[in-house]
């Protein structure tokens, strides 16, 4: 079963995001910090007269913060819009997703959000569930 995936780069790694989760892929503007929020919440940004919550994807994955907020994948969960910071986009491709290979030890929080693997030109890429990167939902899931 082939499905569409958006290919993006996070912390130097290429990953795939199920295209049905993606609302759009954009460059975001000024991010307003949200004091006291979880570190993974980079802040709020305006996007077409709408406020989106900017998620620092690297922090959500247990890495050091993204140096410069620029490109982001916009997704909508539970009526709220989120912007997930990425380094770069590629494009949307059809892939046949495969289950995570057993014995694959994923570092940090990658494990909580990886839901499968796709292969592009023999190069395997993790499929990330963006919803699992939203701090609030992580807590609910745990």
């Amino acid at each position: 079963m082939s499905a569409l995936f958006l290919i993006a780069q996070i912390a130097g790694r290429w990953i795939a995001v199920p295209a049905d989760q993606v609302d759009s892929a954009v460059d975001i503007g000024t991010v307003v910090a949200v004091p006291r929020a979880s570190a993974a919440v980079r802040g709020l940004a305006a996007l077409r007269s709408r406020v989106v919550t900017v998620i620092d994807t690297r922090v959500a994955l247990g890495l050091a913060p993204t140096p410069q907020a620029g490109r982001a994948i916009i997704a909508k969960f539970d009526g709220h819009f989120y912007a997930f910071l990425v380094d770069a986009f590629d494009d949307v491709f059809p892939f046949d997703p495969m289950p995570l290979s057993s014995g694959l030890a994923l570092e940090g929080r990658w494990g909580a959000s990886a839901i499968g693997i796709v292969e592009r030109d023999d190069e395997p890429m993790l499929v990330l569930d963006l919803a699992a990167l939203v701090p609030g939902t992580l807590a609910v899931a745990a």
Partner: peptide, 23 residues
Amino acid sequence: PPAIMATGVYAGQTLPDSGLPLL
């Protein structure tokens, strides 16, 4: 969103004329 609601200090968000989100 819930991630920000969890801080307990914000009641809502808005986009004023300045174009910068405001809590």
